[in-house]
């Protein structure tokens, strides 16, 4: 019993009692030197065991397990579907007006939307004025996605020292500059850019807005790059421009909205003219915010394509 308490005490004050037993002093074992050949043999055995243990291959019980897994998955999905359908059948009928969904919040947005935000399109007014903070988080989500994709897929130059490797890799990813695509792109890209800019600028008047307009411009950029190759775009779109554009857009968004939150929350007059409803320069801050969100989305979509395609800009 005493020995046990000693061990506990030693353990508590964390003394290393593995070597020194209190009865007698143990001499350290000198490591025996092994022949090279036995080490090789041991490594080979270890590999053999590892393959043997983990190569389930097509053994009997693995197949059975796989079938059981599939059946259980299907049963689970059917069970979930059945429950959801029961829930849906008890929901109020779609398309009715007196549902709990159409409560006073949506009534407030519809009735006072135009006066307070100045945006003719109530949805855009809601996104960029009533819930601007949420859309700010949303643009940050896009920025974070860009950063993660950059981390994951960017090829660092140091690992490819020789030129041939670089050239060979590029040949695979470089567009083959076929004439048909280039001719089509010369007509399409300006039209796509124009449409994208139109959708962004008219976000508060017609359906659309920052997100869809930015995606259209991003798609236009992608078409341009896949038609004319990366040398053309490197002139105006490099790593630095991506950083500068997205950060300045987010910064402007943050400053603009914190100003209007500050004035709005304390009932101060925010001196931002809401302008005549229906004019392009009307609804106060919504137009510049739309442009910022559009820039962030366009840059994000283009960065995704570059990173997936080539690993650098």
């Amino acid at each position: 019993m005493k020995k046990l308490t000693n061990k506990l005490l030693d353990w508590l004050n964390a003394e290393d009692q593995s070597v020194f037993d209190d009865a007698m002093e143990l001499k350290m074992q000198e490591p025996k030197e092994e022949k090279e050949e036995t080490v090789q043999q041991r490594m080979r055995d270890r590999l053999h065991i590892k393959d043997e243990v983990y190569s389930e291959g097509e053994s009997k019980e693995v197949k059975v397990l796989r079938i059981i897994y599939r059946i259980l998955a299907i049963i689970l999905c059917g069970f979930i579907a059945y429950n959801l359908l029961i829930a849906v059948s008890w929901l109020p009928r779609t398309g009715e007006f007196d549902k709990p969904v159409n409560n006073e919040v949506s009534a407030r947005y519809i009735e006072k939307g135009l006066q307070e935000t100045g945006a003719v399109n109530i949805v855009t007014g809601m996104i960029l004025d009533y819930r601007a903070f949420d859309t700010f988080g949303e643009s940050n989500v896009l920025n974070i996605a860009t950063i993660t994709v950059l981390i994951l897929l960017r090829r660092n130059k140091k690992k490819l020292p020789n030129e041939i490797e670089e050239k060979e890799n590029d040949r695979l990813l470089e567009p083959k500059n076929d004439v048909i695509l280039q001719k089509a792109a010369t007509f399409l890209v300006p039209a796509i850019f124009l449409f994208g800019i139109y959708v962004i600028l008219n976000g508060h008047l017609s359906p659309g807005g920052g997100f869809s307009g930015g995606a259209i411009i991003g798609a236009g950029l992608i078409l341009y790059v896949s038609a004319f190759g990366f040398e053309k775009t490197e002139k105006f779109f490099t790593e630095k421009t991506q950083k500068v554009i997205s950060l300045s857009a987010l910064l402007f968004y943050c400053l603009a909205k914190s100003y209007s939150f500050f004035t709005g929350a304390n009932e101060l007059e925010s001196h931002i003219p809401l302008g005549k409803a229906g004019a392009i320069l009307s609804s106060g801050l919504i137009l510049p915010l739309n442009i910022c969100v559009g820039l962030v989305v366009a840059v994000t979509m283009y960065t995704f394509y570059c990173m997936f395609r080539k690993g650098e800009f």
């Binding site: 359908l85 029961i86 849906v88 059948s89 008890w90 929901l91 109020p92 009928r93 779609t94």
Partner: peptide
């Protein structure tokens, strides 16, 4: 099953 499955 509730009443409005077909309506929804």
């Amino acid at each position: 099953m509730g009443p409005n499955l077909w309506a929804n």
